[in-house]
Nucleic acid binder design. Structure first.
Lengths: 106, 106
DNA sequence: TGCTTATTTGGTTATATTGCCAAATAGACA
DNA sequence: TGTCTATTTGGCAATATAACCAAATAAGCA
């Protein structure tokens, strides 16, 4: 694998890695529905605000979400909706696994 | 976030996490084109065979790839082709970021 | 059986991630 | 200005990941 190819896969992996966490997936899913501030997300997720803030900064740093300051609050929203398509395929993988399990039981 | 919701996002994250590594992305990309044994992949990637073997086991454990033993070799192939769709969106994110950069320069 | 090749697994070390608390920063408003 | 709220950042401890080498396993063949 040459330098350029390697750089390409590293760049891709960085974006996918940002999505590879349950809390961040939940956040992305929710931000697709509505702009939300950190404090609300923190309550929904059930984690410290500092923790949620870091999750948001990870998603923002790779360009998946955007922030918007409104007074003392920061509202985040989904910038690239196509990431939602990921879920469809992920469900397909899960379904395929479940079916394989069923085969064994039957 | 209740127990069931949490479990759902954890299951999804596990699958995405398996893809969140440059070497594994390269492997998935290549296995989409042709069945390949560990030894060849190891050379292509430029990493120890044991390292590649572990990457493959991670992808296999979440059901993205499948293995097939042929004599002393083990050939792997892509089981769920829709993961390739991920790349399209990932490129879109990268493009969106690049355009934002261009805006700043212009 | 004994040898060779392909692969996996155990062990170890280095690095990265995660989550919380506490402290710093930023904006709104009295 | 001082205070309050929302958010981010520094520091730390616990855990997870990644890579390599070496050893174990599995399959084919002399």
């Amino acid at each position: 694998m040459n330098r350029k190819t390697k750089a390409k896969y590293e760049a891709r992996a960085a974006i996918i890695k940002a999505l590879a966490h349950p809390t961040r997936l939940f956040i992305v899913d929710h931000l697709a529905k509505e702009k939300t501030c950190v404090c609300i997300l923190s309550k929904m997720v059930g984690a410290d605000m500092s923790t949620v803030s870091r999750h948001l900064s990870i998603l923002k740093s790779v360009g998946i979400i955007e922030d918007e300051k409104v007074g003392p609050q920061v509202f985040y929203h989904l910038k690239v909706p196509c990431v939602l398509n990921f879920f469809g395929c992920v469900e397909a993988v899960m379904k395929s696994n479940a079916e394989a399990q069923m085969e064994l039981v039957r």
